[in-house]
């Protein structure tokens, strides 16, 4: 079966401590609960969580939605976004099945990055590794006013911003993510193609602003 890999890259630096991190945890839970009731996503979507603070680590390997369990997330430390990109490309190389003459490989992964700050490491090595992988759609979300959308624009054209990193706003971002994953898993099933750009995503809620 061709899986639709979905990677969540979540900023768990110290600035996320408190309400934001609780909102992110809640958001991932909402995402999973919503997708589990969508037959397309339940069958095809696989989810992985990579967190980054002073270092980056894959805390949930690519897991089918039905077996996904909420990982423990705590906020502390800096914002190693560059390392997170490096970890992401490493995971994609290891986990995403390539097409061979005998087996049709996985669909190209969807990636959702969420950060509330400015990277504290050099993102260049990670960015280079990231650019060598093929992705279906990469959405980067700048949560709150301290996030740097210019850095995110180097990663992907699809950058959105949240005015505040409160729980209601973060929740609506994750609802939009789950609608996007639903749309993506339906599209591969119906047309045999991945989503091409932000215009194919469901319209974002008012709290989620598209950064042009």
């Amino acid at each position: 079966m061709r899986r639709l890999p979905v990677y969540l890259l979540l900023d768990t630096s110290g600035s996320m401590f408190g309400e934001p991190i609780e909102a992110v945890k809640n958001g991932v839970q909402v995402l999973v609960s919503t997708l589990r009731s969508d037959p397309y996503a339940l069958e095809t979507a696989y989810l992985s969580v990579i967190t980054f603070n002073s270092t980056a680590q894959q805390i949930t390997p690519l897991t089918e939605l039905a077996s996904f369990q909420m990982p423990n997330i705590e906020a502390s430390g800096c914002t190693a976004l560059g390392e997170a990109l490096w970890v992401l490309s490493d995971c994609v190389k290891r986990e995403v099945v390539k097409t061979t003459p005998e087996v049709k490989g996985d669909w190209k992964p969807l990636v959702f990055i969420m950060t509330d700050g400015v990277p504290t490491d050099d993102i260049k090595p990670g960015l280079d590794a990231f650019r060598q992988c093929k992705f279906g759609m990469v959405v980067a979300c700048a949560a709150g006013r301290d996030a740097d959308t210019n850095v995110l624009k180097q990663i992907t054209e699809c950058v959105v911003s949240l005015d505040t990193a409160d729980s209601a706003t973060i929740k609506s971002f994750f609802k939009w993510v789950s609608a996007s994953v639903s749309a993506g898993s339906m599209k591969v099933e119906e047309t045999g193609r991945e989503m091409g750009g932000i215009s194919e995503l469901p319209p974002p809620p008012p709290e989620v602003n598209i950064v042009v």
């Binding site: 589990r36 009731s37 969508d38 037959p39 339940l42 069958e43 939605l65 039905a66 909420m70």
Partner: peptide, 13 residues
């Protein structure tokens, strides 16, 4: 503890 019971995907169609 949280026990998540997935819907049977076949019943969702």
């Amino acid at each position: 503890m949280l026990l998540m019971v997935n819907p049977n995907p076949r019943l969702l169609w």
